[in-house]
């Protein structure tokens, strides 16, 4: 079965009624054997164990470390001191005051700015790409291959590539007839990062949205045409609402990815540059200076930021990440139905 259907969490045609009818019964049934649960635990435990080591442990350890600080923090030889003092929330309070606070707020602002601008541009461009590709019948496979190229280029390589393009005497300045120092500090370097990031990721959104578009049946458009709906009307009333679930998931993933942006500004512009320093880069730099306390505090803040965005998307906007929502809705529907029935009989 095509994975496209899967993306929108619609069961394949024909399968839908039968499966929906029998699957919930099976899970509600106490016929779940104890052996099955044990087997599941056995099969899942290696995965959960590794995830505990590489996700849960780092998270707890980061929170723990963020409450400590090396004894002589700012000294050049601060890192040799053995002792670490418990400082409570001081590392967090420092985020909003003083010099390190300014650097943090700058990085926080950069991260937010890059996330909003790149994801916005990617979404618009990705939608346009998908609309164009949806019309294409010939050369589809060549198109698909070329659209995958930016996605496949490692971010570090794309950073190098765009640094070369944005050289002071590089091709970008030649084509634009300008003499902008793209890879130094300043607004130009922000633009360079955004251009490079959008280049790499817009095709990805395009691919996802295209998959969502391809399961919209042509009859819907035919009907709209007969009713006299123009292209824009069709886009606004059919295409966009129907690809919205796909688009929401794609945008969520892009946002989470953009929030942890590191490789691209690091390679394209360089570490420690004020105008492009993101939270990831700041935390990395701090841990490089062996200031694990503040590095951990930055990492925790970034984690909370990412989690907050994810929660907003899933809870408020209803991005259906696991496909569980569809099931939940069905369950609620059935429950409501049962209650109605019960009330009717009473």
């Amino acid at each position: 079965m095509s994975t496209d259907t899967n993306l929108l969490h619609q069961a394949p045609p024909g399968h839908l009624p039968g499966k929906q009818g029998s699957a919930p019964k099976a899970s509600a049934n106490p016929g779940r054997t104890p052996g099955e649960g044990r087997m599941a635990a056995l099969l899942l435990s290696p995965t959960l164990l590794v995830l505990a080591l590489v996700i849960a442990y780092p998270l707890i350890s980061a929170i723990h470390q963020s409450l400590y600080r090396a004894e002589s923090g700012l000294d050049a030889d601060g890192f040799v001191t053995e002792g670490e003092a418990f400082v409570g929330l001081a590392n967090y309070l420092d985020l909003f005051a003083g010099e390190s606070g300014q650097r943090f707020l700058n990085a926080f602002g950069n991260t937010t700015f890059f996330t909003v601008t790149t994801v916005l541009l990617e979404t618009v461009l990705g939608l346009a790409l998908a609309l164009a590709m949806n019309r294409a019948f010939k050369g589809r496979s060549f198109l698909r291959a070329s659209i995958l190229v930016p996605w496949a280029v490692p971010t570090a390589v794309s950073g190098l590539l765009w640094r070369w393009i944005f050289q002071s005497d590089g091709i970008a300045n030649t084509l634009l007839g300008s003499e902008i120092l793209w890879t130094a500090e300043g607004t130009a370097s922000k633009v360079a990062v955004i251009v490079a990031e959008v280049w790499k990721t817009a095709p990805f959104i395009g691919l996802l949205v295209l998959a969502g578009m391809q399961i919209i049946p042509e009859e819907v458009y035919e009907a709209a045409k007969i009713d006299g709906a123009g292209w824009w009307r069709q886009l606004g009333s059919i295409t966009l609402p129907l690809v919205k679930p796909t688009l929401l998931v794609a945008v969520l993933f892009r946002m989470l990815d953009a929030l942890r942006m590191f490789d691209l500004p690091f390679v394209l512009i360089g570490p420690g540059k004020e105008s492009v320093e993101t939270l990831s880069m700041l935390a990395w730099d701090e841990s490089n200076q062996l200031r694990y306390g503040s590095a951990s505090a930055f990492a925790v803040v970034l984690f909370l930021y990412v989690a907050a965005v994810a929660i907003v998307f899933v809870k408020v906007l209803g991005a259906d990440v696991t496909g569980a929502r569809q099931l939940g809705a069905k369950r609620r529907e059935r429950k409501a139905h049962r209650i109605q029935k019960a009330e009717a009989t009473r």
């Binding site: 780092p58 350890s61 980061a62 929030l259 935390a283 694990y292 990492a299």
Partner: peptide
Amino acid sequence: TSMFPGISVVVPLLRF
């Protein structure tokens, strides 16, 4: 867990 930022893994594990 796939949404976990890389840097939040790196900083603690680097020390470990």
